[in-house]
Design a binder for these strands. Structure first.
Lengths: 301, 301
DNA sequence: TGAATTTCATAAGTAGATCTCATTAGCATT
DNA sequence: AATGCTAATGAGATCTACTTATGAAATTCA
């Protein structure tokens, strides 16, 4: 049977493409790594690595096995984490995935409480698009996701955290700037600035706006919420922003945030983890802490 | 880092609940296994096993870790299989899952061709309900499923194999026994015998029958197609059977199979494997062989 | 061209871990 | 109390992954 250490060596070489550096990364001498890799190749009767003195590469066979190797290492570290978690359920490493339109605005509110209520947990934060996050959760690279729930996520365990309203953002010069609230129908004929494809906020905001008869400004698509905000401030159009992104007073100078009255657009932020994940205690503790941190922010307004 | 061998020992104990037998299953002496398990427990600082002289059991902690351990072993054997497959893409072990209403009737037709076109592959056949099969495919315990496709299977890679008609089965004494074909509308008011819950054939057949105005015989639910067949032969009711289950002349004595004319009820049999599975060559070869074995069976009738 | 440099493979020796065999200790059952 | 299982312990053998030192092949540079 294959040994886990061998797979670590293989992956190290795949990453460094250099025996010496890979050995260093594994905390062994270069001859050790060379030797073990050779033995692995002999056992599998496959050449995994092309050795040219100045250019180490994986063979196609090696390339294919790397994925399987990563799976094994992943499963192994899941085992170790599960063991650590049994020792003290509320300790160990926890990898949380968040989307870019939520992370920078929610984290300042939730991390202080998380760190103080779960002091023995090391939180690793990963910012990525929804699709990538789901894949990484599935593969065990992440333990928890925090993002707007979609039907395709049904296979995961779900904890609802909070409903985040979307508010209209306009410049101070815009015709709406004097309003205290806007209605669904006000969107009719308006040109809306949007994020580029792949951001789920784009789909949600546009879904609401389209059905109200608004149109997208096709000449531009922003790569981040901040870009979008600057464009709104420059009076180039209006957009919908999630509430949490409007709370920082520093960014509110040249911009007006106006809540919707009629049918308020919201996104339902949920916490996901794999069904049957071994550290549910931990997951529930995180969910509760996040809820307690966020809900008061929406009550006051 | 944990060693794979240790996990094998742990799982062996979980399965045998006896150090001696577990050791034998791992091809080591009993003291070796005892010792390694102790070291594992020390490393994890957890007691995994309750040792009472005549009753070895896992502790709750051990119980939880067993799952993670199995994941690791699974990933490891996937790695080894992938390596073997690279050596000769059309060799190695292949675990195929099938449902009970298909396996006994399809296998006699497909296995001879599979064994002769893919002589270096060892086929392991697993018969189970759809839900269990999907779970096992996901977990890597199975490589391929052959079953009627459902929308919930979209996350897997799919190869359509054949469309299997459902035909009406009646006793020789039944009023329909003289017909050469039946219509959708003939089902109206008929009492239909069904399989017990969980068989997907039940859902498919009943879906068709209900919409035609037939009623289920609630007083009985068969546990297998064969039971069902005997009940039909005894003139206790009629039912819908998949075509492949009607081809064996031995079981056709006291029973009539009548094809549907109008909108023929069918089930779409597909082959599933994990998206990104490393042995697609193999999967495609199986799919092609099965298609070639089955399609001629439907052409003649 | 030839010396210096880089980089992987080889060789020899060591420490530690896993294994076996033989034996002991702890519980049940009789 | 005696017997029979079963797991733990101890002593010694074997294996293997590791280290350091060195060699060989290719590349770079003077």
């Amino acid at each position: 049977m294959i040994k886990i250490r061998d797979l670590e060596y293989l992956i190290a070489i795949a990453e460094h493409k250099h025996f010496g550096h890979a050995a260093e990364a594994c905390f062994v001498s270069q001859p050790t790594l060379s030797g073990q890799i050779q033995k692995l190749e002999q056992r599998l009767k496959l050449t995994l690595i092309e050795r040219k003195t100045r250019n180490v590469m994986l063979t196609p066979a090696g390339e294919k096995l790397i994925n399987e190797a990563r799976q094994v290492l992943n499963a192994a570290s899941n085992f170790e984490e599960a063991a650590k978690a049994l020792l003290d359920p509320l300790s160990g490493d926890l990898h949380i995935g968040l989307i870019p339109t939520l992370a920078p605005y929610a984290l300042p509110h939730i991390m202080p409480a998380l760190n103080s209520t779960l002091p023995k947990i090391n939180f690793y934060l990963h910012e990525n698009r929804t699709q990538d996050l789901l894949q990484q959760l599935e593969q065990g690279k992440l333990d928890i996701l925090i993002l707007p729930w979609l039907p395709e996520m049904e296979r995961f365990e779900r904890y609802d955290l909070f409903a985040e309203p979307l508010v209209m953002a306009t410049s101070q010069q815009h015709e709406f700037a004097t309003k205290d609230q806007v209605n669904f129908d006000d969107l009719q004929q308006q040109k809306i600035l949007t994020l580029e494809d792949g951001h789920c906020l784009r789909d949600q905001a546009m879904g609401y706006c389209f059905s109200a008869g608004a149109e997208e400004d096709h000449s531009f698509r922003a790569t981040s919420l901040e870009t979008l905000r600057y464009m709104v401030a420059s009076n180039m159009g209006i957009t919908l922003l999630p509430k949490l992104a409007t709370l920082n007073p520093l960014s509110n100078k040249d911009i007006r945030y106006i809540p919707f009255l009629q049918p308020e657009p919201i996104r339902e932020i949920s916490l996901l983890c794999r069904a049957g994940y071994s550290r549910m205690d931990c997951v529930r503790a995180v969910a509760n802490s996040v809820r307690e941190s966020i809900t008061p922010l929406f009550k006051n307004h």
